[in-house]
Amino acid sequence: MISEEELIRRCKEHDRSAQKMLFEKYANKMMAVCMRYCKNQEDAKDLLQDGYYKVLTSIKSFKGNSKIDTWMTRIFINIALNRNRIGRNKYNHYEFDTKFEKADFDEEPIGENIEAKIVIKALNELPEIYKIVLNMYAIDGLSHKEIGERLGISEGSSKSRLSRGRSLLNAKLKRKK
């Protein structure tokens, strides 16, 4: 088993076997990212291929300032956002909130013992503007500033979308439980 540094170095030299090892090592994690940013499995697979192609052709720019999977995740997110133009809707959340009733928002927190598949399914059912911000902030660890830059919205909008998204997801999970 070769070290991660060695693996990256060999990928930078276009070593095909190292590139395949990098794919195999992080395919599951990246597929999870793809599934969260796509509407269906077919789109997620396309994104997985596009993402890895981009990762392997631009790996020379990876300076090692972060973990390789964090850097890869950022690339996958950028491609997902650019490819589908998702999450770019700059309208305020209250236009979307008109679609929901008050019962759709629940501020009382749900417990943490919920099956992972149910949580992910509920997340995917959220309107895109909330789902993307929840994904980026809660799971992928981007700051509101980064989210704002990537989605072309203000930090304030990012915060309010996150808050509404949490509330909607909470209500959905309660109903599913």
């Binding site: 999870a32 969260r36 927190p109 749900i110 943490e112 997340l123 809660a138 997801l169």
Partner: peptide, 9 residues
Amino acid sequence: IDNVLKKAA
């Protein structure tokens, strides 16, 4: 809920 999401992911 962020923790629930992170854990699920």
